[in-house]
Each structure stands twice: as C-alpha cells, then as structure tokens.
Amino acid sequence: MLTCKKATHLMSAGLDRPLGPGERLRLRLHLIFCRGCRAFRNQIGWLRNISRGFVGRDDGPD
C-alpha cells in the first residue's frame, strides 16, 4: 500500500508527466481510502489553475 507521503509525490508528478499504469492503479486505490490525499490532490490541482490565472491578472499599481 502506498504511503501518503509517496502518494503526494505521485500526485505532483502526475501534473508533470503521464503516470504509468501501475502508478495510476496504486494511486487510485490509495485515494479511495484516503480523504487527506484526496484533499491534497484537489488543492494542488487548484493551485495549477489559479497560477495560470495569476499571470493574466491586472490588479493595477501596488
């Protein structure tokens, strides 16, 4: 069974490269049972989305 720490590394790697079939399976199994890692996954995905938006923001002078 994947540890939470290893799962966080896989979830991050999944944003940068395609995960292998074994990695995907182990991660999916882990996420079924781990609420904390599900929250982590949503949050780093959200960070990606808002970072893209941050670049286009124009909030005027500081």
């Binding site: 540890t3 939470c4 290893k6 929250a39």
Partner: peptide, 17 residues
C-alpha cells in the same frame, strides 16, 4: 506533516478548503 509510517498526522491531514 507525516507520522513515522508516512501517513498524515491527524492534526495535519489536508481538509477541503
């Protein structure tokens, strides 16, 4: 944030924002 067996500690486990 993790305990010795690399799972989330109860007090640091991510919760939905």
């Amino acid at each position: 944030l993790f305990n010795a067996s690399e799972h989330w500690r109860p007090d640091t486990r991510p919760r939905p924002w």
